[in-house]
């Protein structure tokens, strides 16, 4: 069983999919970089800021995903969790999907508790269930983008206003979902959020006075580390 779920060909299969993702990202980024530089006249330092921001913001929040990966590996072998958490999967979603798959054939998710039948069920449920997201993105993004494009023809100010409104709504939801809803149950999470928020306020205000742009660039990373530190202390 252990050899089957860690077979060499499975690693190769997963590696091909993951290389495919990296290639897709690389092509899109290269095209966007050229568009930003040649057509939008953004300078290299501004574009590099976007790149660095994407990297800095993603390092630490990926750690919980690695923890889930390491939790699932002893139960399901390495290739399946590696694939599922690299493509579409989120830390919580994949654990639930694996459990739903194994339970659907009457087995329990655990180390050494599942048979090949349970593993196959988990593999199908995790892969097929989550692939529905790709089906949605393949067919729904274009019409929704066109809808915004149509509004642009009516009035550009309307589109910019709606864009700013959607962003405001997203931020308001995030403030509740990642912070305020944890009062009074889950105060550690709330304090992590609140500490990061307060430091963010201080840095933004200092930055407005001193005009230190590097502070703005690293604000998210600094605040995140501070919030995480507070979570350990409280």
């Amino acid at each position: 069983m252990k050899e089957i779920i860690n077979a060499g060909w499975m690693y190769a299969f997963v590696a091909v999919i993951i290389i495919g993702i990296l290639v897709q990202n690389f092509i899109m980024m290269r095209k966007a970089w050229n568009h930003a530089k040649n057509d939008l006249k953004l300078d290299d330092s501004q574009i590099r800021k976007g790149l660095i921001n994407g990297i800095l913001v993603s390092i630490v929040p990926t750690i919980p995903v690695i923890v889930v990966l390491l939790t699932l590996v002893p139960m399901l072998g390495s290739p399946l969790p590696w694939l599922r958490l690299s493509v579409i999967g989120s830390a919580t979603g994949e654990s639930i999907a694996a459990d739903a798959g194994v339970q659907s054939v009457g087995e329990t998710l655990g180390i050494g508790t599942i048979t090949m039948v349970g593993w196959t069920a988990a593999c199908w449920v995790m892969s097929m269930g989550n692939s529905s997201s790709l089906l949605w993105s393949t067919f729904a993004i274009r019409p929704i983008s066109k809808m915004y494009g149509a509004a642009e023809k009516v009035d550009m100010r309307l589109v910019l206003g709606i864009g700013a409104g959607c962003l405001a709504g997203t931020m308001a939801y995030a403030a509740v979902n990642f912070g305020l809803k944890y009062i009074p149950k889950g105060m550690t999470t709330f304090w992590a959020f609140a500490a990061s928020f307060c430091l963010g306020v201080v840095i933004t205000l200092v930055n407005k006075k001193l005009k230190k742009s590097w502070l703005n660039d690293f604000l998210m990373a600094i605040c995140m580390l501070f919030g995480m530190f507070i979570a350990c202390v409280v």
Binding site: A174, F190, S196, F197, G227
Partner: peptide
């Protein structure tokens, strides 16, 4: 386990 709330705190303030 609180990395994401900590990430959003600073982002929302900004």
């Amino acid at each position: 386990s609180n990395a994401i709330p900590a990430l959003f705190g600073g982002l929302i303030a900004q």
